[in-house]
């Protein structure tokens, strides 16, 4: 069975057992799906879904809303390919449940920019070759946008020398803050250059 067929099968199973309203108790602790109605606000659009309670935010976006920009790398919060910006904060969308995000404002790479209207970070990644195969790139870009916002908001990092002094966007700060985004192709130094440019400092 191909991956696509498996996904289609799993989706069909959820559809068959969909129950309105609250998650149903009698199926719990087994392999039988428990479903719930979930309202997600994703890239400014309100979407209503009937989802298995197990559905991660990542799977809700990719498999149910067909927003396939966010990628599944490790599915355990170790690689960062699934990074989304939720209520202004970057998170690993594979390590959170869709049902926990009723009312959250969710931004994926599709919501940051589109080919005809790129986000400055997307444009900078292209200019500086901040990727090779591109698989980690949507997560890198979402993370990169949020990192600059975190520095602007005064949130310190492990490499911040003085916890009580104003923060600066330095290559060391960028590298430390981006450590949750792995790039197997090794585009790291170009990613630092792209982020540095967007931060408004000479690359």
């Amino acid at each position: 069975m191909s991956r696509r067929e498996l996904v289609a099968g799993a989706t069909a199973a959820v559809a068959l057992t969909t129950l309105p309203g609250q998650a149903q108790a009698e199926n719990a602790g087994t392999d039988r799906p428990v479903t719930a109605k979930v309202n997600l606000t994703i890239n400014g659009e309100r979407r209503e879904l009937d989802l298995d309670t197990r559905t991660s935010l990542l799977d809700a976006a990719r498999e149910h809303l067909h927003l396939t920009g966010s990628k599944k790398g490790c599915d355990h919060g170790q690689c960062g390919a699934c990074t989304m910006i939720v209520d202004g904060r970057r998170i690993n969308s594979c390590l959170t449940l869709a049902v926990m995000h009723q009312g959250s404002e969710i931004t994926t790479i599709e919501g940051l920019g589109q080919p005809d209207a790129l986000h400055p970070m997307q444009a900078a990644f292209i200019k500086h070759d901040g990727y090779q195969c591109g698989y980690c790139t949507p997560g890198q870009i979402c993370s990169g946008v949020a990192v600059l916002a975190e520095i602007k908001a005064g949130i310190p990092s492990h490499v911040t020398a003085d916890l009580n002094a104003p923060l600066e966007v330095t290559p060391a700060e960028i590298r430390e803050r981006m450590s949750g985004n792995i790039c197997r192709c090794g585009a790291y130094s170009n990613i630092v250059e792209a982020m540095t440019e967007v931060a408004g400092r000479p690359a």
Partner: peptide, 12 residues
């Protein structure tokens, strides 16, 4: 706290 995990994880 800052020595632990990643930025994404610390946010959650």
């Amino acid at each position: 706290l800052l020595a632990g995990a990643s930025g994404q994880l610390r946010n959650k």
